[in-house]
Amino acid sequence: MGRLYWLLLFMATAIATHAAYVLYYPGYNFDSKVAAAMGDGSHNKMMMLSAAQVARLFPAYSANDVVAMCRYDLTQGPMQISARLPRGYWTFSIFTVKGRQVYSLTDAQAGESSFTVDLSQSPDILAKIKGALDDGGEAEAISEVGWKVETPEEKGIAVIWVPVADPIFRGTTLAAVRNSTCQRVK
C-alpha cells in the first residue's frame, strides 16, 4: 500500500510537471524572449523588423524579407489590424502567445492587397453560456461587418510577411508595408 502511494505521488508529479512545461511554460518564455528582441513599448503597434530581428525570431523567413509584427494585448479591448501590402505573394498570420496559429491568410485567398481584421478574445465558456441565456441563443451569431478573428489567448502576435522577389525591390516593399497599422478599436 505504501509503495503504491509513493508511485502515485511520483506519477502525479511527473504528469503535472510535463503538462506545465509543454502547455504553460512556453507562453511565458516566448513572450519574454519576443519582448527582449523587440524592446520595451512594442505592444499594440505595428513594427517593421530589422534583418537581425527577423533572423532571431523567424526560422522560416529569410532575413532580407520584409516582416511587420504586432504584439497584441487584448486585455484592454479588441484590436484592429489594417494591412496595406504590395501586389505579389504575402502571408498574414495570427499566433497566440503559446505559438498556436489561429489565423492565416495569403494573397491568393484574400484576392486583394489591402484588408482590415478585427481581433478580439473569444469569450470563455461561462460567458458563452451566459450570453446564450441572455440573448435567447443568438449570442453566437457572427457579425457580418468586416473580417473578425477571435483568439483564445489575450496576448500573441500578428505577422505580415512579404518575401522580397529581388533585393533591389526591398526598399519599395518596405515602404508599402510600413503603411499597415495595429491599433485598439475606439
Binding site: 511554460y25 512556453p26 518564455n29 532571431r56 525570431l57 526560422p59 522560416a60 503559446k98 505559438g99 496559429q101
Partner: peptide, 10 residues
C-alpha cells in the same frame, strides 16, 4: 520553436 523564442513556421 517557442522554447527557443522563435515564431513557429506558418
Amino acid at each position: 520553436f517557442i522554447n527557443q523564442g522563435q515564431v513557429p513556421p506558418p
